[in-house]
Computed example of a mutant assay.
Amino acid sequence: MTSNRGSTPMVHAEALGKQVTTTAGELTILEDVRLSVAAGESVAVVGASGSGKSTLLGLLAGLDTPSHGRVLLDGVELGALDEDGRAAVRAGRVGFVFQAFQLLPSLTALENVMLPLELEGQASARGRARELLELAGLGSRLDHYPSQLSGGEQQRVAIARAFANEPRVLFADEPTGNLDRGTGARVMELLFNLNRDHHTTLVLVTHDEALAGRCDRRLLLDAGRIVGEQAGALRAG
């Protein structure tokens, strides 16, 4: 499945497959997946539980390696790199948002967002983290720990952290999955505002039809194969 936004994709997969060995034998999770996502585009991967969505996201992000096929991320072939090389690509170009937030409980909201900036040696980490949290509507919650924040607030901290290093592409696995409808809508708005303002490519795995509908495209994954594509109908300008 290809994008019509340009000739050089930000994310590109060719004949991507993933098999794992189980006690019952070889299990195919993904088979012959082909897709391209343009810079600045937002794409939702949808499908039933067990269709391979999270596995696909992990392969596209370089968190896992395919059994066959290849992934190019911002023009870099991930399969040609060792784990340290893939980690370097992720650190410099990729942000992640997960359903389970994955904030460090011993750090405040501000410190959680500062962490990737400090790891990169950025002197302006505190100011950049404060700016992102204010954009996320959390300017009054900077010194709160995750346990003192609601689920929606924790997810907004996680999104602010994911955007801290201005990634070229953000991968999100069920970013509204643990949230009620109203809170999920606010998180969704933040994602697309940052996508628009920073021209960050978004690749989302979601069961949320409203979130999928806000994306430029949705790809339907069924039994490990992409079987359909639909343009998003609700994309805000």
Score class of each variant (00 low, 15 high):
Gly47Arg: 06
Gly50Asp: 10
Gly50Ile: 09
Ser51Ala: 15
Gly52Arg: 03
Gly52Met: 06
Ser54Lys: 02
Leu57Tyr: 05
Leu59His: 11
Leu59Gln: 06
Leu59Val: 10
Leu59Gly: 06
Leu60Val: 10
Ala61Ser: 15
Ala61Val: 09
Gly62Ala: 05
Leu63Asp: 07
Asp64Pro: 00
Asp64Tyr: 04
Ser67Cys: 02
Ser67Val: 04
Gly69Leu: 07
Val76Lys: 07
Glu77Cys: 10
Leu78Trp: 03
Leu81Gly: 11
Glu83Asn: 12
Gly85Lys: 08
Gly85Leu: 08
Arg86Thr: 10
Ala91Tyr: 07
Arg93Asn: 13
Val94Gln: 08
Val94His: 07
Val94Glu: 05
Gly95Trp: 01
Val97Met: 06
Val97His: 01
Gln102Trp: 04
Leu104Asp: 09
Ala109Tyr: 01
Asn112Thr: 03
Met114Arg: 14
Met114Ile: 00
Pro116Ser: 12
Leu119Ala: 14
Leu119Phe: 14
Arg128Cys: 12
Ala129Pro: 06
Leu133Arg: 00
Glu134Val: 13
Glu134Cys: 10
Leu138Asp: 02
Gly139Val: 08
Ser140Phe: 02
Arg141Glu: 12
Arg141Val: 11
Arg141Ala: 15
Leu142Met: 09
Asp143Phe: 05
Tyr145Lys: 15
Pro146Leu: 08
Ser147Met: 13
Ser147Trp: 12
Gln148Val: 07
Gln148Ala: 15
Leu149Ile: 04
Leu149Gln: 01
Gly151Ala: 09
Gly152Trp: 02
Glu153Ser: 00
Glu153Pro: 00
Gln154Glu: 08
Val157Asn: 00
Ala158His: 04
Ala158Asp: 01
Ile159Cys: 01
Arg161Phe: 04
Asn165Phe: 07
Glu166Val: 13
Pro167Asn: 12
Phe171Asp: 06
